[in-house]
Structure formats: C-alpha cells, structure tokens
Amino acid sequence: MEQSQSGSMADRTVLITGSTAGIGKATAVGLATMGARVLIIGRDRVRTENTASEILAIGGGPVELFVADMSLQAEVRRLAGEVLQRHARIDVLINNVGGYWNTRHVTPDGLEHTFALNHLAPFLLTNLLLESLKQSAAGRVVTVSSNAQAMGRIDFDDLQGERSYSGARAYNQSKLANVLFTYELARRLQTTSVTANAVHPGLVSTAFGAGDPGRAQRLFVPVLRPFMKSPAQGAATSIHLASAPDLDQMTGRYFAKSKPTRSSKRSYDTLVAARLWEVSADLVGLTAPAANA
C-alpha cells in the first residue's frame, strides 16, 4: 500500500463484502489498521467472527461483523437493513465479493450464480445503501473488477447462460458488468458527493475459484502461483481508493496498481450500461431508479 498517498481513516465507516478471506480480508485488515471502523461481511458466522478477532488482535479499529450469503437477494436486503439500523452514514462501500464456477449453478432466486453474486449483489447492495453513502462528506463506492473485463461481452440474449454456458465467459461478462455499473453509477451520482470507481487487483494468490475450477485454472494456477501477488498486495488498490484524500472528486474511473487507467472499449458503451442498469433493476426488484440524485 502507498502509505504516503493514503490518509487516516479515523472516524470513517467502511463496509467490505467478501471480507473473510483473500483480497477482502486483506483490505479489511489494511483499513482497520488505518483507524477505520470496518464492517465485515461473510457467509459463514465462525469464519466471520474469527476474522473480526484477528483484526482486533493486531490493533485494528472498531470491527463489526454481519453474516449474509450475497448470492441471495433476500440476504442482501436483510444485510442492508441491518447495516442501516446501526449506521446512518457509510463513508466507503467496497464491493469485493465474487466467485468463479466452471459449471452452471442456479441460485434459489432462479439466477445464474456468477451473474447473481458478481454483479447483481453489488448492484443491489449499492442502491440500498446509497442514501447512507450520501450522508458522508465524501462517500465512495469501490467495486472490485478484473482485467477479465477486457474479454467480457454483455449478452442480453443469454445473460444467465441458459442456452450456452462457459465458466470463463460468465466470469468475464460479470467483470465487464462491474465496470459498466461503476461508470453508470458515477454518471447518476455526478451531482452528489459520492464517487464510484472500479479496481483491477492484479493476479492474486488466493483460493478463488477453487471449489469449481476450470481446466485452465487447474493447469496454470499451480505454475503461476509463485509469481502471483499476495492478498495484501492485491488489496493495495482498493485500500488506496478507499483512503487517499486526493481522490474525493475522482469518479467513473478504472484503477490498476493504484493509478487510473483505461478499461476495455466495451466498458465505455453508455447505451449498454444504461440497458444493463435497467435489466439489473428489474432482476433485483428495484422499482425506483435509486441512484438518480
């Protein structure tokens, strides 16, 4: 992390999804040690409690834990409700949760798992927490994408992979959706104090995708692992975007190695972004355009 460019996070409340392992956990640790009140989210209560204890043991700021399966819309709504009961103001939301499945899985909501967790969960949670983010003098939404977005394409005729499914294709699409969502959110929030940016963390050595890996992952990850970033290195850009004081006005950008860079040509298609927003709002049951300021 570039400490010289990052500010103190004392009195700042940060919510991080997928924060019991890998990049998310490293992000929570990093921001907590900078003084932030960290709200950590995990699926498993024991792992989430253990993560909270670890952060407190290293002298981190206040930690609160919430348990939710982010692939389920009812759980996302419950989570948002519980957070809002405790906190009228959220300063930073880091949409970190994500996954990869080589075979097609359907959630109880009837949605393809990759699309539901990687895109619809952050889309819904962000919209539900927007009013609390607007209470911050400089609210920030940071969404973790990947350079896989460069290989992604939004297939509106088969968003959920019902006709033809590929784990890689579903993942790439979801990561492009993260960037399109970020840019559209930034446009909708341009008259507010809330910024929205996306992150490429780099190739990081975690257990990501280990539950249902594709052939390429099985073959190449063991070979590449010695050259991958550590979770702490992978978290550096998310931490920078959450904490750097000079980024209060920076919005609608894609960051890698803590610097803004260009994302794929498809990610700048405003018509696709607007259509994806409307389709996503319909899939999660948002009746009002919550992000319109």
Rank of each mutant, 00 (worst) to 15 (best):
E184N: 08
R104N: 13
F115M: 08
Q149A: 01
A52E: 06
E2D: 11
A52W: 01
L125W: 07
A288E: 09
K257V: 08
M9A: 10
G81C: 06
A52S: 13
G61Y: 05
L185G: 07
S174V: 02
S19E: 00
G18Y: 08
T143N: 08
D248I: 14
L31W: 00
G22E: 02
G81E: 13
G285F: 06
M1P: 09
T251P: 00
P231A: 06
A10F: 13
L39G: 04
V14S: 12
N118Y: 00
Y183V: 09
Q3N: 09
R218G: 15
R86E: 14
A232R: 11
G285I: 01
G110C: 12
H87K: 13
R266H: 13
A198T: 05
F227S: 03
L72S: 02
E131P: 14
F255I: 06
S19C: 10
V194D: 14
R225Y: 09
A293K: 00
R169E: 00
Q233G: 12
V199H: 03
L39V: 08
L286H: 03
I239C: 10
A68P: 09
E64D: 07
A281H: 07
D158T: 04
P226A: 15
G35I: 07
S71C: 12
K134F: 14
D157G: 15
G285D: 09
I55K: 10
S238N: 09
T33W: 04
V92P: 15
D91W: 07
P222Y: 07
L133T: 02
R262A: 07
L130G: 10
M70I: 11
L224A: 13
E82D: 15
Q73N: 07
L271E: 01
A198G: 10
T206E: 02
A68W: 09
V92T: 08
S166H: 10
R187A: 15
R78F: 00
A236I: 05
F115I: 09
A138Q: 11
N292S: 14
V221L: 15
D158L: 14
V38W: 00
V92A: 01
V284L: 07
F227Q: 05
G209W: 13
L189F: 05
V63E: 00
L117Y: 01
A177Q: 02
I41M: 11
P201I: 04
I154E: 01
L72G: 03
S8F: 06
V67M: 13
A80R: 06
N96D: 03
R215K: 13
T17F: 12
V63I: 14
T195Y: 06
L247P: 05
R12Y: 14
G59Y: 04
T13S: 03
G161D: 06
S145D: 01
L15G: 06
T251D: 03
M1V: 14
V76I: 08
A52V: 11
V76T: 07
W277L: 11
A273K: 03
T237E: 05
R153E: 12
D44V: 04
F156N: 01
A170C: 06
G42H: 08
F227I: 13
H87G: 00
Y183A: 09
A196Y: 01
T126A: 11
Q3K: 12
A170D: 01
K259A: 02
Q160R: 05
S6Y: 05
N127I: 15
R163V: 15
Q149H: 03
